[in-house]
């Protein structure tokens, strides 16, 4: 039962990721693309944790931890670049 729920959650997260990807490819200007990339990062994080649950190894969560901490820096760098130059 819990396994099925995790798989369903992975499927829903993947669907949300597809919608954000469509916006990333389509977006006319760079700011839209930066926000879409941030959204995709925040969606891929629970996918990595869900994968750790499905496979059953807790070491996979370290990778999600690294991404969670470092994704903020990329978005800040983009925001400063788009505003007035990095």
């Amino acid at each position: 039962m819990a396994e099925t729920l995790v798989l369903v959650a992975l499927g829903i997260a993947l669907l949300a990721g597809m919608l954000a990807t469509v916006q990333l490819v389509r977006g006319p200007d760079a700011a839209t693309r930066a926000v879409a990339l941030d959204a995709i990062t925040l969606i891929t994080l629970p996918m990595m944790v869900g994968l750790a649950l499905v496979v059953g190894r807790s070491i996979y969560i370290d990778v999600a931890l690294v991404y969670a901490i470092l994704s903020f820096l990329g978005v800040v760098a983009f925001a400063r670049y788009l505003d007035r130059g990095i």
């Binding site: 901490i69 820096l73 800040v76």
Partner: peptide
């Protein structure tokens, strides 16, 4: 990761 921390200060 340590270099990213320094990058944050430089940004």
């Amino acid at each position: 990761v340590v270099a990213s921390a320094v990058l944050m200060l430089l940004l």
